[in-house]
Design a binder for these strands. Sequence first.
DNA 1: CTATGGCACGGATT
DNA 2: AATCCGTGCCATAG
Length: 474
Amino acid sequence: MLAQIQSTSIRPLTTAHLAQTMSLLELTADELRQKIDNELAANPALELGDLHRCTVCHRPLSEPGCCPVCSQPKRVETEEPIVFISPRTDFHQPGEYFDSENADDDEWAPAIEDLPAHILRQIATELTASDRPIAAHILTSLDEDGLLRLPLLEIARYHHVAPSQITQVLRLIQLADPIGVGSGSPQEALLVQLEVLAETRPVPPLAARAILEGMDLLSRRSYNELGRLLKIPAAQAQQIAQFISENLNPFPARAHWGETYSSNPASLAYHDADIIVTPLNNTPGTPLVVEIASPYAGALRVNPMFRDAITQAPEEKLEQWQSHLDRASLLVKCIQQRNYTLVRLVKRLMVLQREFILHGDQHLQPITRASLAKELSVHESTVSRAVSDKAIQMPNGRILPLSKLFDRSLNVRTAMRQLIENENEPLSDTQLMDLLNQQGFSVARRTVAKYRTIEGILPARMRYTSTKSPPQHS
DNA sequence: CTATGGCACGGATT
DNA sequence: AATCCGTGCCATAG
């Protein structure tokens, strides 16, 4: 990589160059692709060479040879993450990648893909050949809210398969990124979201029943009636309703739910994950495989013919050509710099947050951008730029903002939630504080209260009724 | 009197 | 330089 950087240098770096490197760092993969596309169109000195492909799986690579995954199929002895730059953002699947002859390099995914494509890409690897047309059928039938208004039986009949297979495919879709998408009703969507949410954090025990039985009451906000239905105090009913409205979304395709029905198209734009992490295999010490999306990586270069031609440039064109050449080489160089920084940063991040990635919120290390910057001996703002606006896809398929890996208090909050979840009698903030301090989290009582409200948990006094009332489960 | 929420301050983060 | 976050102090509710 370093050799490549040096080989394209023409004029020495200026502060303007550095500025561009920094601004590139804060672009997401999609934004970067757009910028490159613009530059490609405007600058004849820049060209797109052939993509390298993995010799085994044909996956596009930024460097010639075999991709890091195929070349290390059974490497389990190291916890060192495998981080590499990928020219595309697709999920990696050895052997099942594009056939090289069918791969249409001209047709890249659009910068902002539509919802069906977004979902399909997430679940593509889990679909069998016979599932594919079904998934396509379902995805193209989604309405604008992300709901499926088509009877399942109809789809089953159309494809001549058992309804159970349909539900199986549908299930995959529902668990994909706008969670709950493809559900038959807002109700169902809420339930799916609730279920997924419950995997990582406690949810009010009666929330499922509230959705199932009291949907109309929820939407009418009649908490008293809801309370009566669930045999709980109205205050608690309201708490549940609040939880639902804050954390769940009956229309998965809409980014936000609430009074603001303003159909804001920007909020519907799902952007790709810029980073994708998967465990290489399921053995305990398995390395993490991390792809960093960087469009055209390895293919973008300065046109060598253009460079040669400049020696014979007509006098009046010389200045313009030279500037084209400079711009082109600068962009290439800056992108390589960007990728290099990103790789280093992500690599370190993966080591630090390995437990979190594999085992969830509780294991998140409260690291700061500043500390990471120090370790990598770069400026803090560099880390800040690199992290901002980017999204990372976790092994479970969730796409979350990269900044979540820098949450200072998530681990404490999850610990606190668990304490409350397992409590026999409501614990006061002070008691919670003591317990948390025992676990090594030094937080003040006042802070516990803050976290509690952040998590939408009622004060101990109000929780009393909920614990004492019928211990029903759903 | 105890448990919480509000306000504001200082230090960390961006 | 602006902003966010944890915390202490104090008022208030129960």
